Simulated scan of single mutants.
Amino acid sequence: MAKRVVSVSLGSSRRDAAAEVELLGERVLLERRGTDGDFQRALCLIQELDGKVDAIGLGGIDLYLFAGGRRYAIRDALRLKEAAKKTPVVDGSGLKHTLERRAVRELASLIDWRKTKVLLPSAVDRFGLAEALDEAGARVLYGDFIFALGLPIPLYSLSFLQKLAFLLLPLFTRLPFSVLYPTGKKQEEVREDWRARYYAWADVVAGDWHYVRRHMPKDMRGKTVITNTTTEEDVAFLRERGVRRLVTTTPRLGGRSFGTNVMEAMLVALAGRELGEADYLRYIDQIGLKPQVLELEGQA
């Protein structure tokens, strides 16, 4: 019998998808179900799925934000996780921390990081990626103040960002999640505004797709985007803006890449238990998960 994994997302239901994969000799059914930003609907759906599926992924919301080895739980997300009493619930943070670090190393043959300027709209959502880029020698603009809070304060020091995170994350994680991150129909909005200059500065834009997309200017010629969850519609959006290359850190299945929460839930379903960092690294090697590179220039 196939394993069943469902991602319950606060994002738009327009992005719903399903796929079947065979991994390590087992069939796994993957499904994404968006609730259009309706927190109560997501809560009820998790309760309904509890005990009926092998693992649940949380999409459009993080359970935890990270900074320098410390983990901060988001209050709203914990309510969703605790709605399931039997089925494990994961948000993709464990896989993000390992898979995206490794992706930076894998891409070193394609991108000379020491000569590359990277815009990371949200580093606390992708702290493993932020650390890996810093270690690789890239010049990184950490855009947490700019993109999450709307404040024109670019940060270029990972250690300074870490100190600010230690100070501010205990407060921010108690706010309604919709204040920090676009949910529901807000994910479909694109607002080209004063933030466009930070895209113009960068050679590479990396991180969460909704943060990357929301303020993307029309002219992205020659740039690379590194993200995880993209549909065929998203690929067309990037091509229209002249993006040279799309790198997804999760594999493309049925014309789209699924989020790290789906992939993490899939691995938990295969293992039959929640996993640690060493487990994720072992599975990444066993399955052969590598960044998927899509050259967009010159394609119809």
Rank of each mutant, 00 (worst) to 15 (best):
T230Y: 13
D279S: 12
G254Q: 08
V205N: 08
L270N: 05
R195G: 04
A206H: 02
D208T: 03
M220R: 02
D208M: 02
L275P: 03
L180T: 04
Y198A: 10
K185W: 01
K185H: 09
V268L: 04
H215K: 07
F172D: 00
E295G: 12
D234C: 02
E264Q: 11
T260V: 12
F258Y: 14
K223M: 11
G255S: 10
P170Q: 00
E192F: 03
L281S: 14
L169E: 03
K223P: 00
D208G: 02
K186C: 00
V262D: 08
P217Q: 01
Y280N: 04
T250P: 09
L296A: 10
G272I: 06
K290W: 11
E189R: 15
E274K: 15
E189F: 13
A196I: 05
Q292R: 14
V225Q: 02
Y283H: 06
V225W: 00
E274L: 06
F172K: 00
R213K: 15
L296E: 06
D285Q: 15
V235F: 05
T250A: 04
K218A: 15
G254N: 11
R282I: 04
D193R: 09
H210N: 14
P176Y: 10
P182E: 08
T230H: 09
S257V: 09
G255L: 08
Y198C: 11
D234Y: 07
V205S: 10
A202D: 02
Y283K: 03
V225A: 07
T231W: 13
N228C: 07
A202N: 01
M266L: 15
E274C: 03
E240L: 13
G298V: 13
E189C: 08
V243S: 01
M263S: 08
K218N: 12
P217M: 03
A300C: 09
M220A: 08
T230N: 10
P251C: 00
T173W: 06
V262C: 13
E233M: 11
G276A: 03
D208H: 05
E232V: 12
A278N: 14
D193V: 10
K223C: 07
P291T: 02
T227G: 08
T231K: 10
F177E: 00
A206N: 03
A300L: 14
V204M: 05
M266C: 14
V179A: 06
R214C: 00
V268D: 01
Y199T: 05
R273G: 11
R241F: 07
R282A: 14
